[in-house]
Structures are given as C-alpha cells and as structure tokens.
Simulated assay, not measured.
Amino acid sequence: MGLPFSPKDHLLDLDGIEIAVRCWGPEEGIPVLALHGWLDNAASFERLAPQLDGCFVIAPDLVGHGRSDHRRHDSGYYLWEHAEDMLAVTESLGLGQFHVLAHGMGTGVASLLAAMTSGIVSMTFLDGMGAPFTVAEDDRVHHLARAYRLKRMVQRSQLQGFSEPDGSRFDTVQTALEQRRRRLDGELSEDAARLLALRDLLQVGDGYCWRHDPRLVLPEPMPLTEREACELLREIRCPLYLMLGRQGAFSGDVFALREASLPAQAKVSWHPGGHHFHLEAPDRALVDQLLRTLARHEGGLLQRQVNE
C-alpha cells in the first residue's frame, strides 16, 4: 500500500455556480466520482478515499451543500439537477470514463446520472438504493400543494428552518455537532459528525452557522414517484454493486421494497455498521472489496496492486 495522498480542494465555476471539490490520490489514477448523501458533503469520504490506492477520488459538495454555492432563490433542489451538475463536473475535468461511488441520496443522483451518460464504468452504492424521497402516484398534486405552502410559510417568516428561528446559529461547534447528529443519523459517532460539520460550518462573529442552504430541508415540489425511482434502477446498464449497512437504512424489510427493481447484474453485500458505515470506520475488508470491484473493470496499476 502506498503512502496516503493529502486531499486537495478546488473550486469549479459551472455557469456562474461554484462547486467545491475535494480530491484524493494521483490525478493519473482510476477516476472515481464520489457522491455524498443528503445534508452531508465531501467529508463523507474523508476516511475511505485515502485508502483507495491507485484511485483519483473526486468528491464534490453538491450544490447547496458544504462549501458549494446555493441555487438562486427562485430555484430549488432536484435530484436531476444534481445529476446534471455532476455530469458538468466530469466534463469540466475531462473525464470521459469514470466510476461512481455514491452514498445515501447520492445513489439517487447516480441513478439519474446513469441515464444521462454512457461514461460510467461501474457504480457502487453505499447504503443507498436510488432516490430516497419519493411520492405516491396519486399524491403528486396534494404533495405539490403542501410543498408550496410550506415554502411560502418559510419565506414569509424568514426562518432558517421549519420552526427554529435560532436553529442555524450556534455558540459552539459542539452545539452544532449535537444538532447534526440528531437530524441526520442518531447513531453517528461524534468524531464522524465532526468531520461532516467542520466542512459545513462558517464562523460568524462569536458563533457559527451552517454553510448549506436551509432550503434543503424543504420537500421537493415534484419529486420522483416510487415507480420512477424503481425504473431508474432497472435501467442501470453498467456493473452495479450495493454495499449496505446491517444496521443501516435498508435493514429489516426495507431492502425488499426495492430488491425486485435492481438490474440483473447488481450484486449486494452487507457490512457491519449503520447508514454511515463507510465514514465511521471503513475496515480493510471494505476497502479491499472496493478495490477488487474497481480492478474487475480496470487493468494496469490498480489490478497489479490488488493482486499483490
């Protein structure tokens, strides 16, 4: 195993929107586009990416998340917009062919990205099975009305969240960490939450506030239906690997709800830990499995390293 590469941060200007990108590994390595989950950021891969020897891991902060710009106030946040952004990122970096490593909501973005480009060599989902937020076919109109009313209520009240006027201001980093753990993953360790939070906190005077757009907690007015989310999964043509946490979002009966929608080539494995198992403590077995997966579809340096 080679020496770990220190991460490098870049800003990409895509049609006036700056997207923050954190990269690990040599630029001549196997390109891996790493897509984080909802309200997370590129730090989601802070512990895993440095262990992927021979890979060039590119982890953008999705627009509205982390250190990337927010969308205009007359715009919103849809999975297909994130997918279009990520396609622009790969084109900006000159990546004709690349692998995708996606977590949580990022797997929904990835499923749409797969419909937009044939450049994906393989996809690996980390505790995700496509679009996480869907609406029933017969509830779209009612959902749209509810989402619009909620948006207007927040706009009129000038709140930074649903009902917490001070919810985005914190006296200490520790207070922010506690909120992050409550909202995202109650099982997330303090160390893991700190990695995510530090990339998403901005010091303002004597306190702190989140960098991410508070509108991210609002529901999409027109989300995908469950049928559409499942159809996107079925249409994935590249090799697809699902690595799910035994105590994660798909434990119990949840996995079965989308199992039938997986394409024939999909391979599923289960790993110790919860929804953020890749961030909490990525063990050697997980890293080796990822490297074997990439090596299966790539020759050269990475294949030799795995064989050794």
Results as ranks from 00 to 15, higher is better:
Val89Tyr: 08
Val89Phe: 04
Val89Leu: 08
Thr90Met: 11
Glu91Ser: 08
Glu91Ala: 11
Glu91His: 07
Ser92Ile: 07
Ser92Trp: 08
Ser92Gly: 09
Leu93Val: 02
Gly94Phe: 03
Gly94Lys: 04
Gly94Asp: 04
Leu95Met: 11
Gly96Ser: 06
Gly96Lys: 03
Phe98Thr: 01
Phe98Ile: 03
Val100Arg: 00
Val100Asp: 05
Val100Gly: 08
Leu101Pro: 06
Ala102Tyr: 06
Ala102Lys: 00
Ala102Gln: 04
Ala102Val: 04
His103Phe: 07
Met105Ser: 05
Thr107Gln: 02
Thr107Ala: 00
Thr107Asn: 02
Gly108His: 00
Gly108Ile: 00
Val109Tyr: 02
Val109Cys: 02
Ala110Phe: 01
Ser111Leu: 05
Leu112Val: 10
Leu112Arg: 12
Leu112Met: 12
Leu113Met: 12
Ala114Gln: 09
Ala114Ser: 12
Ala114Val: 01
Ala115Asp: 14
Ala115Trp: 10
Met116Arg: 13
Met116Lys: 15
Met116Gly: 13
Met116His: 13
Ser118Gly: 15
Ser118Leu: 09
Ser118His: 15
Ser118Cys: 12
Gly119Lys: 01
Gly119Leu: 03
Gly119Pro: 08
Val121Leu: 08
Val121Gln: 05
Ser122Ile: 05
Ser122Lys: 07
Ser122Cys: 04
Met123Tyr: 07
Met123Glu: 06
Met123Gly: 03
Thr124Ile: 05
Thr124Glu: 05
Thr124Pro: 02
Leu126Glu: 08
Leu126Asn: 02
Leu126Ala: 10
Asp127Val: 08
Asp127His: 06
Gly128Ala: 09
Met129His: 02
Met129Glu: 09
Ala131Leu: 06
Phe133Ile: 09
Thr134Glu: 09
Thr134Ile: 12
Thr134Pro: 11
Thr134Tyr: 14
Thr134Gln: 13
Thr134Arg: 15
Val135Ser: 10
Glu137Cys: 14
Glu137Gln: 15
Glu137Arg: 15
Glu137Ala: 12
Asp139Tyr: 14
Asp139Leu: 15
Asp139His: 15
Arg140Gly: 11
Arg140Trp: 12
Val141Trp: 11
Val141Leu: 13
His142Thr: 13
His142Asn: 14
His143Gln: 12
His143Ile: 14
His143Lys: 09
Leu144Ile: 07
Leu144Gln: 15
Leu144Glu: 15
Leu144Cys: 14
